[in-house]
Design a protein around this nucleic acid. Structure first.
Lengths: 357, 357
DNA sequence: GTGAAAGCGCTAACAT
DNA sequence: ATGTTAGCGCTTTCAC
């Protein structure tokens, strides 16, 4: 008697959501059958299927994703670990990832390391504790260094089996990766300057331990070489990172030289923003006094001067491709398949003075 | 014998992470005790505590968050449902929310409804299925309408008990809310125009079923009234939403009038971007031909002309306050406490022509 | 202060 | 084709 009361208590309480057991009882079948109907994991007669679906409907049953994942070890959640949450570029990538995942019935964890490698690992670990199905990482780790940043074999294994890196990845790691053709696009931008006859061309870039910085730098040098222009070390400014501050510092440095450059290649959108601020402070007019080409578009270009010539990263495609690649990887269980490196192409957008030239 | 083999198999396999049982065994205590040590949920002698912590360390044990949440009904995950993922404003809010949550040991789900109310509800439901502890919502639902968009009592209850709305909320709902002083800030902006002597002042705004649009509109009218300026209906342009396109349409309309306005109040940052595009197309110079004040700053203002006078929303504070409020609400179990409405103040930034005036 | 046992809601293996 | 049973990894009574 006691137990019966308890059971009915449970069924009465309106704040607790219905479980698979409630559905089974109402449909007059076993919980296992309900599970099979909902997951299409075994054939069931149309008759019982109908009963189950009806019960689901009347109870407004929604399955508990946690219990399901815990038991089946199959999660419908993907984590996205980014290293910055500042630029419109990353916002677009996030949007594409979120959209692609949700279209496939997945949810997204979002975490930001703010450029701290240790924090990045913490985020990955905490996502693992929540049994995510996989992770997309915009890493801030340039190189695996067992001394400075030990990574457990478990994490290492996870990074290889259930991750996709975007934009950049730690050098020497064999991982799936989605990025852009940094070298080629940089080459094209610098070539525009060279074709126009400029020879005193500067570069503002970040630390070349960063993959993207390194590749863009390489494109710059390649172009100079192809046009037989010797490198003037005074025109090379390489700051700590690809951020705004570095751009500002680069402007302060380059614009103070005895013979300033005629043209500058800026290796990122944030660098460009900082560089423009520096120009403004120094009273240098853009366009006019100096010619700029930049990697990555800057948001406001369509609205107001200056219209900068740049290459536009396919930010949406980057996110979409990364998400699709990860889902594919997770769903086909082949553990040992070869890693893939996808390079999407940037579009070089020619604006302003170049149109006249 | 058979079972023993199985057990040892289990312990050998290196791909499975250690469980609380493994820790308990190694420390020579029961799983319950390990749980109590880790969660500080009961007093334990320092001696056994030490043993447990040691075992945790050597096994590199990390507790399974899913199992923990499933059993304790206490989740460390918060969902953020946004209605758009386009502007830098929302990026900042997201950043603040993510940061605040992670500082408190929480993880964040991110979902975007893209302005579709039905999708918004789906997102909330799927988060509920994952047993999130609470949700922060930038809603696109202006009004509860049982006919068009039925909301189950369960969801309704959840929205009231474990949610915080940001930026706007459905009219008539009694919920926790974090927003800004839309009316007051708009008043101040329009007052700047009035004090400078303008009388032919226009407004570009979104549909006033949207809370923010309504309040900003109200501030506009209040200012005109206070300065005894009668409203000229031709100068009121109210489009569908607060987006860029509406701003462009507003520019096309207002700049084509026989006697165009001398000054315009733009009720959002995106409206401003669109309006500027319209000005550019029509060859109207800003600043110069027409005076603008805008609600919400636009990203590039510090770098390039035009420097617009505007009010800056405290986007970081909005996100941080919303997250803190939600965590507080969840942690203090008082179910029936009064709802709170927090209004943060915008900073009016006076730039350009106003400085000379 | 500690442990045994039950159970959160689900799915997978094994019967029938 | 369906049901029975066990158990994912954890927390929580309730004994001792």
């Amino acid at each position: 008697m006691e137990s019966k009361v308890k059971i009915s208590m449970k069924k009465e309480s309106r704040d607790s959501k219905p479980t698979i057991v409630d559905v089974a009882r109402l449909a007059g079948v076993s919980p296992a059958t309900v599970s099979h109907v909902l997951n299409k994991t075994k054939r069931v007669t149309p008759e019982t299927e109908e009963k189950v679906l009806q019960a689901v409907k009347t109870l407004r049953y929604q399955k508990n994703a946690l219990a399901s994942t815990l038991r089946s070890r199959n999660s419908q959640v993907i984590g996205f670990v980014t290293s910055q949450l500042h630029s419109i570029f990353w916002l677009r990538v996030i949007r594409a990832v979120e959209y692609t995942l949700s279209q496939n019935g997945y949810q997204m964890f979002l975490g930001c390391s703010y450029g701290d490698p240790a924090r990045e690992l913490e985020l990955i670990e905490s996502m693992l504790q929540s049994m995510v199905g996989g992770v997309i990482i915009a890493t801030c780790i340039n190189e695996i260094n067992e001394k400075e940043l030990p990574i457990s074999p478990q994490i290492m294994n996870f990074l290889e089996e259930r991750c996709v890196f975007v934009d950049t990845y730690p050098s020497g790691m064999n991982v799936d990766f989605v990025g852009v053709n940094n070298e080629e696009a940089s080459f094209q931008l610098v070539e525009l300057l060279l074709k126009k006859g400029y020879r005193r061309i500067a570069m503002v870039n970040g630390d070349s331990r960063i993959l993207t910085a390194r590749e863009r730098r390489s494109g710059f040098f390649k172009a100079l070489k192809e046009y037989a222009v010797s490198v003037d070390e005074r025109y090379i400014f390489e700051g700590k990172n690809l951020g705004k501050r570095t751009g500002l510092e680069g402007a302060n440095y380059l614009l103070s030289l005895d013979s300033p450059p005629e043209a500058v290649f800026l290796a990122s959108g944030n660098l460009t923003v900082g560089f423009l601020e520096g120009c403004r402070e120094k009273g240098v007019r853009i366009p006019g006094d100096i010619e700029l080409v930049g990697f990555d578009d800057i948001e406001w270009t369509p609205v107001i001067e200056p219209f900068l010539t740049c290459c536009v990263q396919p930010s949406w495609d980057i996110g979409e491709t990364a998400a699709s690649l990860l889902l594919e990887k997770i769903q086909e269980k082949k553990e040992g398949r070869a890693k893939r490196e996808v390079r999407l192409k940037c579009e070089v957008v020619i604006r302003n003075t170049f149109q006249k030239g």
